[in-house]
């Protein structure tokens, strides 16, 4: 099926972002049952369901132009959203190679890569980029390799250094985080950067997850889904800008919840970076308004039950405490047993 890219829409100010019927149909609804529980829901990232978000390692969808424009805007205002520590150079080139190989192979109409030894030629037909460079030589690119490539892929990217039997957040491009700051978390170990997550530490979730991630092998990536809620289709829900967007949460009513509240799903993907032995952690974010979501009645009923029964600490961590009641009031109309 041909991928049709939309013209640029906005994730701020007038919020013109919306999903086509096709995008709604392929939205990765994250709840397999009527109740949400923490689990190490990691699975091998094998390709499945052609056309779905699970087909390719790096999913490109109709919002490509909009997301790349939004990333450029965020970086212009706050360059600290991108960071690479000096020992992450090999990992950066690994990441560039992984993206270029997969994107050109999976989306040949959008991207192309030709190579003769270390002489590479990359073309991004959507953004009009045509770049000859020497692989491994940062001087032949207009900016650092990780910045160059992550300005061309949807989703936030963190590169994790593996050492001392742990993972460290030592590089990344993070312009659409769900309330975490790369500038603050940089350099932290796996458990350190997960400190703000409630309950899970006590359940031993991070011990099991870390052990699993440390042993990811080359070409055997894994993935998991995570979710939260966002008011308006706002990509940049960073702590850096919280004082500008946090008040949106007070504007939700039982009447406007369908238009304002969005389910935000992260498709997290973790792959071994072959030569550096680091890990790529990509966080691909999908937004859907509840008005769009309830066009699927099974999703509508289930979302109501999940949010109604969510433990308070998790609801609080996900930032929904202030508007949970009006939201549930609105959602209950789609639950026949409510």
């Amino acid at each position: 099926m041909t991928l049709i890219l939309k013209p640029v829409e906005t994730y701020r100010d007038d919020f013109t972002f919306s999903n086509s019927a096709h995008a709604i149909a392929r939205f990765p609804f994250p709840f397999p049952e009527d109740q949400y529980r923490y689990s190490v829901n990691i699975e091998p990232a094998t390709s499945r369901d052609p056309g779905s978000v699970f087909e390719h390692w790096f999913d490109i969808d109709e919002h490509y132009r909009s997301e790349m424009a939004e990333r450029a805007r965020v970086l212009e205002q706050d360059p600290r959203r991108y960071l690479v520590m000096p020992h992450m150079q090999t990992a950066s080139w690994d990441a560039l190679q992984m993206f270029m190989e997969h994107l050109s192979n999976d989306y040949p109409a959008l991207f192309s890569l030709t190579r003769a030894g270390d002489q590479w030629h990359w073309r991004n037909h959507v953004l009009g980029i045509d770049q000859h460079f020497t692989f491994g030589d940062p001087g032949t690119l207009p900016c650092e390799p990780l910045e160059f490539i992550t300005r061309q892929v949807q989703g936030d990217i963190a590169l994790l250094d593996q050492r001392d039997n742990d993972l460290f957040m030592d590089a990344g491009m993070v312009t659409s985080p769900a309330d975490w700051s790369l500038a603050f978390d940089a350099g932290m170990s796996f458990k350190q950067w997960h400190t703000p997550v409630p309950m899970a530490h006590e359940l031993g979730v991070f011990d099991r997850a870390l052990k699993y991630l440390l042993n990811i092998q080359v070409d055997k990536p894994v993935r998991r889904l995570n979710w939260t809620l966002t008011i308006n289709p706002r990509m940049d829900t960073s702590p850096e800008t919280f004082h500008e967007w946090g008040h949106d949460r007070s504007t939700v009513t039982a009447e406007n919840a369908g238009a304002l509240v969005h389910l935000r799903v992260e498709l997290q993907f973790m792959a071994r970076l072959p030569r550096s032995n680091g890990l790529m952690f990509s966080i691909r974010t999908y937004l859907i308004s509840l008005n769009e979501l309830v066009t699927n009645p099974v999703w509508a009923t289930r979302l109501h039950r999940v949010l109604r029964d969510l433990p308070d600490p998790i609801a609080d961590y996900k930032g929904m405490t202030r508007y949970r009641q009006p939201l549930l009031a609105w959602l209950s109309q789609f639950d026949p047993h409510a």
Binding site: G187, T195, P196, H243, E244, G246
Partner: peptide, 16 residues
């Protein structure tokens, strides 16, 4: 939440 690199706790707007 504490960053060893910055030697500091995280401060975030308390009332948006």
């Amino acid at each position: 939440h504490f960053s060893r690199r910055l030697g500091a706790y995280l401060g975030v707007c308390r009332n948006a």
